[in-house]
Amino acid sequence: MSEQPASDPPPPLLYSMREEWKDVQPLDQSDLTNPLVPIFYPPEYKDAMDYFRGIVAKGEKSQRVLELTEHIIRMNPAHYTVWQYRYDTLLELEAPLDKELALMDELALTNMKFYQVWHHRKLLLLKYAQPAAELSFISKVLAVDSKNYHTWAYRQWLLAHFDQEDLWSLELPSVELLLQEDVRNNSAWHHRFFVVFDSGVREGDEDREQVLRREINFTKQKIAIAPNNLSAWNYLRGILDRVEVKYATLKDFVVPYTTPREERPVVEEEVLDLDNPRPSSSASLPCALAIEFLADICLEEGDTTKAAELFTSLAEEHDTMRKRYWDYRVKECLGTQSTRT
């Protein structure tokens, strides 16, 4: 992953030169003389792997196996066989899992893009069952990389698996903070959906009508700040689809985003309409995502001509990269699309 800092201690003595490993017969990975795609392993890595294979052949599960597997994992955190054997050894030895978790804290921060680091953590939590401290650890990782996929998936697993109200209760404020920092953080938007709509009903969220209003208003405000934001529009569509509310209920909100700025005389009362915040003064208009949304409203209302017109404006002018798709939507409006299965 990264260069070794100069202050690192020298690599440990090879296992083949250590008295306390004399009883293990090191094993080569292969007896093929001519394999394809050989990797030029650094000597330290090859030596450790040879002894690991020797240990597996013996079936030994001991303290020194924990040292050996940690050594290999630090060199190659993607080695799932080594992780598997380490986990078996931890269980066999009934090793203290809090100590293992502390090690994972360190490894997750330096190797956050590896599946195994997060999965091992999950295995520990399943045994250890103390999720309370996890959320603050997760925040630490997200402060380094606010979109790390594994971290988010782990956070959501933790919430779903333990399903404790005190864990859930801090999630919405945490998402709001992240979206305040970066309204384009799609991971945070997804987490909001996960918390509010996808995992049952939270304490205080029992009035679903009120929750829907809250979420729609929240999203409108975020769209007003930065209209050309796929994440926010996807969230808006997502919640309307989920609760089966028509897009047309948002027509008044959407229209001002679909026209160029100069065509839009600013009327004072409109600016004060809190239910329908207008685009910020620096927004780039018209917004393709809003035109698409309005076209879908027209389809709901049965106005296929107007919908086709809007899709055509996307194809020809406002979103030419997706011309093929908008043309397809136009054909769909006009009923000339071939039959669907």
Binding site: I39, A78, H79
Partner: peptide, 25 residues
């Protein structure tokens, strides 16, 4: 070169993906 001569040491992170290296190449 990668297929016949092999992969430099930094590919040790792919040690658990050897069939993948062949598949991709």
């Amino acid at each position: 070169v990668l297929l016949f001569q092999g992969l430099p040491a930094r590919y040790k992170s792919q040690d658990a993906s050897q069939p993948w290296l062949m598949f991709w190449i």
